[in-house]
């Protein structure tokens, strides 16, 4: 090989700040704001630096308002940086050149680009024309998407009559029809049921494999990220607080699982607490945090020893994981419960 593959995305010291106007509530506040507008500078992205290689899939994690979406929008050319530099596939995104736009895509939740009153197929035709996709490439892509996403039967239905999941599949297909090399996926599975989340995930993985596309994914669902990305970038307050291997991150923070139980009858909190850290109690429902390694044995013991009606095991919510990781604070509910012991669980 003559040279190593260049980075697909190169970001250095990227910043974005906004000036926001502040207004106190009420009429008096409005009047005051009319004459004296108070402004505040908000640092949405405060200098982030990273590179992403061809074919690499990276998960962006961070609490709401951390700057994930703002960063993605700058990478896609929608927002102009306040400072620093961005290079995506050799282009400066904010120039929005046609050749650049043909190489990228940005999928934002359910922001629709499909025409509401027509079958999705019509929107696809529009995209085919706009992206100047030759007929045989279009046919080939559609055949592949049909198989992976199971679009058969929903392409000819009016978009407004599709279910949320069906619509999301079509949105994704429309966004990837031109076979972009760089994918920015902002919460692509939000609001979807678990089956559909899995289907979308598989599609993204398959697309990445087939087209060697670079992917940046943000998600609230830990499962999305763990299933797809080896590398994780955690953003908090506009800055990168972690950039590395997924395994390392889960070791550092996600080494715990949450067992939710629904009890058939009352049990003392003390007894419950012997299985793990009680996070919250609500009627006959309780949430316990346990070390990842002992999750299944603890769940088995719970089932055997307590009057359990239902049990589910899940990852702690991503915001909690990150909160614990960097702030070291626990959810308030757990402290409240602990302060009140001993008491009986249930009403």
């Amino acid at each position: 090989m003559k040279h190593l593959p260049a980075h697909t995305i190169q970001v250095a010291g990227l910043q974005k700040h906004y000036v926001v106007h502040e207004k106190e509530p009420g009429l008096a506040g409005s009047l005051r704001a009319f004459f004296h507008r108070k402004t505040k500078l908000v640092q949405a992205v405060a200098g982030v630096t990273f590179t992403i290689d061809p074919g690499e899939m990276v998960g962006f994690l961070g609490p709401n308002g951390a700057g994930k979406t703002t960063t993605l929008k700058m990478l896609a050319g929608l927002l102009h940086p306040s400072g620093g530099s961005v290079d995506v596939a050799g282009f400066t995104p904010k120039e929005r050149r046609a050749a650049f736009l043909k190489l990228i895509t940005l999928v934002m939740g359910q922001k629709q680009q499909l025409l509401w009153d027509l079958p999705a197929l019509d929107s696809f035709r529009v995209n085919q024309a706009i992206y100047e996709i030759p007929d045989d490439e279009y046919q080939a892509t559609m055949r592949e998407f049909n198989t992976i996403l199971e679009l058969e039967g929903i392409l000819k239905k009016q978009v407004r009559k599709l279910s949320l999941g069906e619509r999301m599949k079509c949105e994704l297909a429309a966004a990837l029809l031109h076979r972009p090399k760089v994918l920015f996926l902002d919460e692509p599975t939000i609001g979807l049921d678990v089956n559909m989340q899995v289907r979308i995930r598989e599609f993204v993985a398959e697309y990445n494999r087939r087209f060697q596309a670079s992917v940046i994914l943000t998600s609230h669902y830990m499962a999305d990220v763990t299933a797809l990305c080896k590398r994780i970038i955690v953003i908090d307050k506009g800055q990168i607080v972690f950039d590395g291997d997924l395994g390392e991150l889960t070791e550092r923070a996600g080494a715990r699982k949450v067992i939710s139980v629904e009890l058939a009858r009352l049990v003392t909190l003390e007894r419950l607490a012997s299985y793990g850290q009680v996070q919250s109690v609500e009627g006959l429902r309780a949430r316990l945090e346990v070390p990842r390694q002992t999750t299944s044995s603890t769940a088995a013991r719970l089932l055997a020893e307590l009057p359990i009606a239902d049990v589910t095991i899940e990852d702690p919510p991503i915001e909690e994981v990150i909160g614990q990781m960097f702030g070291g604070h626990r959810p308030a509910t757990a402290d409240m419960v602990r302060a009140q012991e001993p008491q009986e669980v249930g009403s």
Binding site: A89, G90, L103, P134, H178, R179
Partner: peptide, 12 residues
């Protein structure tokens, strides 16, 4: 710069 995959142009 990257360029999009070239396809034989079969009409568009």
């Amino acid at each position: 710069r990257m360029v999009a995959t070239k396809y034989r142009d079969t009409g568009r």
